[in-house]
């Protein structure tokens, strides 16, 4: 078990290196820093000096991977690759275009992101699984059919609609909660309720349908027939037998996103003006702040890989066949 986890951890290293190389290639090789500078400065202000100044300000004036001018180890370290990509492994993301330290910024924004993403995730999981169990309990009846149709309809609605519609209805028509903004402490609750509800609502359709499929597949298994042949009521069959087994495929799909909850939700955060990582990312994209985007890509992959690892572990815990072998 421990060896297994260590092996998975070791396996993560080449993947992170791969991500790093990929982003490096995307950001510095496909386009040279000169191109970026030209674009950022705008057509009118492009002069060689301006470009040079822009690059120096951001530390993009070094050679890409090999600094022939430097001496000793500096041939490797005094390069864009080293200063911009390798140092990410140490958690050093450099500065954003507005001069702020990206690592610091990320640290302070994770809290709000999590405050909204975590409740959404937990509540969404709970609601969708209960809903799916309900449909499965009444499978092959009109209720089931109507439920599935409702799910399909709900997942056909754009996520943007849920947000815009929800904001309009709850905040503008009913004046129940503030439309956007964020506060610390207990105050946060009144800002969070709406985005969480909307987040849960928007995800119900597809996840309920997915869980329902899993449950239905599980319910045709032989052991379910055995359980019924014992005389167990359908409710017990569903909760004790089907749900436990279905948790295994559900876990594989769900656990992987848990670490990524830190990343926040791009749309929700930007619509509701929550100062989390999601809105940070969107702002960076809109402002074309390459340093921030690059950092978020890196953090995102680290979290995803952590999610994979967590999946493996939870899977092992949930399934005795894996745990005990």
């Amino acid at each position: 078990m421990l060896a297994y986890i260590i092996r998975r951890l070791l396996y993560a290293i080449p993947i992170l290196i791969g991500v790093n190389l990929l982003t490096f290639a995307l950001f510095f090789v496909v386009n040279t820093p000169d191109d970026m500078a030209r674009m950022q400065l705008g057509v009118k202000r492009v002069t060689p000096e301006a470009i040079q100044k822009w690059k120096v300000e951001r530390g993009y004036d070094k050679p890409l991977v090999w600094n022939a001018a430097a001496a000793g180890s500096a041939t490797l370290t005094d390069t864009i690759f080293f200063s911009k990509s390798v140092r990410m492994f140490a958690g050093d993301f450099g500065r954003a275009d507005d001069g702020r330290d990206i690592s610091r910024e990320i640290g302070s924004r994770m809290g709000p992101s999590l405050a909204i993403a975590l409740p959404t995730f937990v509540l969404g999981l709970f609601v969708a699984i209960s809903f799916a169990l309900l449909l499965v309990f009444f499978r092959a009846t009109t209720l089931d059919f109507a439920g599935v149709v409702l799910c399909v309809a709900m997942m056909s609605i754009s996520g943007l609609f849920y947000i815009i519609g929800g904001q309009w209805l709850v905040s503008k028509v009913w004046h129940l909660v503030p439309i956007s903004g964020y506060g610390g402490g207990l105050d946060a609750a009144k800002f969070l309720i709406l985005p969480v509800i909307i987040g849960v609502f928007g995800g119900i359709g597809s996840s309920t349908r997915w869980y329902r499929t899993i449950f239905l597949e599980e319910i045709t298994r032989d052991y379910v027939r055995t359980a019924r042949a014992k005389g167990l009521p359908e409710r017990v069959v569903l909760f004790r037998h089907v749900l436990r087994n279905a948790m295994i495929p559900i876990l594989t799909g769900v656990v992987v996103v848990i670490p990524s909850l830190f990343m926040g939700s791009l749309l929700t955060e930007s619509f509701f003006g929550i100062p989390g990582l999601g809105s940070y990312t969107i702002d960076a994209i809109n402002a074309q702040d390459f340093a921030v985007v690059r950092s978020m890509v890196f953090i995102g992959s680290v979290l995803y890989i952590a999610g994979l690892l967590l999946t493996d572990i939870s899977y092992t815990l949930a399934d005795p066949r894996v745990r005990l072998q």
Partner: peptide
């Protein structure tokens, strides 16, 4: 490739 969050990779 899939370890990079989709929106970010697309954005980049």
């Amino acid at each position: 490739l899939s370890s990079i969050p989709g929106v970010l990779l697309i954005a980049a």
